[in-house]
Nucleic acid binder design. Structure first.
Lengths: 297, 297
DNA sequence: CTCATTGTTTAGTATTATTTAACAATAAGA
DNA sequence: TCTTATTGTTAAATAATACTAAACAATGAG
């Protein structure tokens, strides 16, 4: 028994003053309205309407019920409209999880654009390279660089980032520029432990994936830290393009063997569910993907 | 789709923190809870809960919906309890319709007892000898003296009143006491036009109904008026016992042929419906019936 | 790694909602 | 006064849905 249906029927009858008119208003039959009123009266154990075949009169209890029932139905409509508006407007908080370096270098300018366009959007960005459980930590959305583990989470591909093998001019002056990736086994390297394969770097040559074990002198769980290490001139680094972009532009680092390595790693936007995404999430996602395509060409 | 059911399930989940616990609380299966939540989210087009098989988290929209939905369910419970209380207490108005003389002489003392015992009961008594439509004029209850016309109304028999043929001592002194009802055709009479049969009186002799056409000198639509007419000594009257009771006691009127006439007419309590009577109506009805039995013996 | 427990899905069943049609009651019109 | 049209009610039939049971995939605890 759908109580809200019964209430709706009763309100229509009270306002129209007749079962038939109420049935027309609601697009139902008068028979249904009749059973609805009977059910409601049985449920409430109170007579709401006094009716003969021709005339009808609302009881004092019916009048009191009408007023309050109408308010309750209004409250439900208001609640639902407000909730929909809340989820479809760009007001409120958006919790984002992202890898540290990626967040620092890529995401901050992207988010700056978004918030200046939507001042009421509150963004909370948590940068972390450890594994993050989106659901239990209450994130709305996350960015992941690299291949994804199997998961129940939903991924939306945003594009790719090139992997750059690089060193400083001082390093090249001292060791000379390597002519093949296999020389990395003999040259001092810094290793970003955020990479999946422990102790090895993978390159793509002529669409073939080649694994090389570099000579590792330093390990660190940060792409930016390893780029900065390379800038000292002591080591070669293998970093995502975004983390060394500025240093390459300034000439502080130089890309090595750019024609021999076409490695790319995927960038994904992740959310914990697929349905009824708030527009905060969809707006952020779309804006990030646009931004990423803009800066990676 | 019973929206209140969906809301109830969601509230249980939000409070218990798990679908299974919510299902146990409501005595339903977890499968049902799962579909309820999905339906509610589809209905609202908003994600309320973020859930994996093991952990669950309420969204900010879900939290807001929970608080307001809970209030709405509370409002419904409160409304229903209040309505039931309202109809079961003796507070409020009771509109009664009754014949004029009956109301003036019988009902007023009866109602006086009732209101002094229930000070919060407001009684509105409308006395009227014309036909009254209980429903369209909004009466809760009516009293009818005499046989009832066929009707959709509900009648509860309260007892009977004797019909008394009577005249004043002066009348008897002048005309002598009649020895048979058939003499009424020759003696001057006052006729109460509230009687059903126009121009004739019916008597009950040895369980046989006898119709007599009296010699009518005055017609009036009031039993009390016809009794007062008889008290002048000019005419014989035929009245319900309650309307001449006081005059008989004082000796102002004398009952004629009491052993030859056993006519009684029924007294009924009438209401426009049978179900969900307010306790105002049932209390009044019971009190009147008790009172009537007390005064008629 | 196993096991128990979670939420989801599907198919089947039970229940309810709704309509259709026949009905009794009654106000309006002839 | 009689007929007609319209009212609310009822019963039976059907459409819709609520609910369950069972099998499932995912995952945290031991």
């Amino acid at each position: 028994m759908d109580k809200l249906n019964l209430m709706t029927s009763f309100i229509a009858v009270a306002e129209e003053g007749s079962f038939t008119a109420a049935a027309n208003r609601l697009g139902k039959t008068k028979a249904l309205i009749s059973t609805h009123i009977s059910q409601l009266e049985d449920l409430l154990k109170v007579r709401l309407l006094i009716r003969s075949t021709r005339s009808m009169q609302i009881t004092s209890e019916g009048q009191s019920y009408y007023e309050q029932a109408k308010k309750i139905l209004d409250d439900i409509v208001t609640l639902e409209a407000q909730l929909l508006h809340e989820s479809q407007s760009l007001v409120g908080r958006l919790r984002i999880s992202a890898p540290t370096t990626f967040g620092e270098l890529v995401l901050m300018p992207c988010i700056a654009e978004l918030t200046s366009a939507n001042p009421e959007l509150e963004i909370e960005l948590l940068l972390n390279d450890r594994f993050v459980d989106l659901i239990s930590e209450g994130f709305d959305v996350a960015l992941r660089v690299g291949n994804l583990a199997d998961s129940s989470l939903i991924a939306r591909p945003a594009g790719f980032t090139k992997m750059i093998l690089c060193a400083s001019p001082e390093f090249i002056e001292h060791y000379g520029e390597p002519e093949s990736i296999h020389q990395l086994a003999d040259l001092p390297c810094v290793f970003d432990t955020n990479h999946r394969q422990a102790g090895s770097w993978s390159f793509t040559q002529d669409k073939q994936i080649v694994e090389v074990k570099p000579y590792i002198t330093v390990r660190v769980n940060s792409a930016l830290a390893s780029a900065n290490m390379a800038r000292t001139g002591r080591v070669i680094a293998y970093c995502p393009e975004f983390s060394v972009h500025a240093m390459l532009e300034k000439g502080e680092l130089i890309s090595l063997l750019p024609h021999e390595n076409k490695s790319q790693i995927p960038v994904n936007v992740i959310y914990p569910h697929r349905q009824h995404l708030s527009s905060r999430v969809t707006t952020f996602t779309q804006h990030f993907i646009d931004y990423w395509h803009r800066i990676t060409g």
